[in-house]
Design a protein around this nucleic acid. Structure first.
Lengths: 200, 200
DNA sequence: TGTACATCAGTGAACGCGCGTTCACTGATGTAC
DNA sequence: TGTACATCAGTGAACGCGCGTTCACTGATGTAC
């Protein structure tokens, strides 16, 4: 059952993509190699034709999800008629119940920080690179002096990530609190960006 | 080898305490029942004399860690000469490498949001109650109009939690970024509270 | 271009190991009288 | 208060199951000539 080289590459990509989704949705520990292979449409035995270990897959899946999600964000902003407005609108969309409830296709920054912290160098390196790419996008669109914007970006990203992880943590325990967190941080975020832009 | 009733209660508490530490440090999935029992100084067989399942322990451990950590915080503020200053100082201490590197004895809000989100009702309920108790403390010490203070508390807590989880996620992958996040969010936090207190 | 062999992606069974949970056993505590 | 039996927390072995990883096998693709 040997397969075309291109087909092999495609299959490998399908595995990474499946892992990227499952890991964000259910956590790296709770997803088995067999789950990933099954999600990708294969039996689990073939896994080691592509990867030397689950850890290696984890690092690639982290890189993959950041690439996908930063590309989406950039695309959304750049193709808009009013990019700065689209940026704010994207950040607002980040802090919604829809994003909270769909971690598998959502932001890896918010889905994986704790899992990343508990994994090895490779995973953490990819995670850190991913965060930097988010910060770069934020810094660009916050505008103004670049080093000031960078600081603002760090604060914005922290607030947004904190809001998502908290809202997910209490979702079933206190749905009101979960929504309150999203709403208040969204309000704060819009206020922060617009006042930064038009000071006084 | 039957044991005194009081001794039984103490032993149970030791198990919960060990779990509370290990779960925050390494995550609920990665810590085995046998690890907890061993940490508490027992063999693992006796676990089910105290708890009906690991899940039940998880819910109790969450409640326990919040009780411990909010009590510490309150104590620290209330016994200080200048409580409002002690509050700010406590928040600053939250955003340090020391706290980042000691999740086992640190804030459960920052250590467990994602684990909590992936667990059952009981765990999430305890987690949500814990967050509310944190928000109550924040709301009190932020001061001013209570509903405004509550909003401020939600934003502060989100920013702080986001900063800690991010700094932990990139610690080994990018130590500089890890510190940058803590530092910038700390700066933002102090600015937020002090300007709120003395507006212009 | 055609042929013959080597390669290797996918399959499905298997291996070891660790985990949550159960169980038989022990002997000191708790309790009924 | 003293005695006799029941209870039950702790021990250590065991059970089943799921996991990461390995392996023998297959047959179409890749390659050397």
């Amino acid at each position: 059952m040997r397969i075309t080289k291109e087909q092999t590459e495609q299959n490998r990509a399908r595995i990474v993509d499946a892992a990227a989704r499952l890991f964000r949705a259910r956590g790296m520990e709770s997803v088995a190699v067999a789950d990933v292979m099954n999600e990708a449409g294969f039996t689990h035995g073939g896994f080691y034709n592509h990867f030397s270990s689950k850890e290696e897959l984890a690092a690639e899946a982290v890189a993959w999800s950041f690439r996908e999600s930063t590309a989406q964000l950039t695309e959304m902003i750049v193709t808009a008629e009013d990019p700065p407005a689209a940026f704010i609108s994207a950040l607002k969309g980040y802090l919604t119940a829809a994003h909270r409830d769909a971690p598998g296709g959502g932001c890896p920054t918010a889905a994986l920080p704790i899992d990343a912290g508990r994994h090895g160098q490779d995973v953490q390196t990819e995670y850190a690179k991913g965060i930097e790419s988010y910060l770069d996008i934020f810094t660009t669109w916050v505008g103004g002096n670049r080093s000031v914007a960078r600081r603002e970006a760090v604060v914005l990203l922290s607030g947004m990530v904190g809001a998502i992880v908290l809202s997910r943590g209490v979702r079933d325990g206190s749905p009101e609190l979960s929504l309150e967190v999203l709403q208040e941080v969204q309000r704060w975020l819009v206020r922060s960006i617009t006042t930064k832009r038009a000071p006084e």
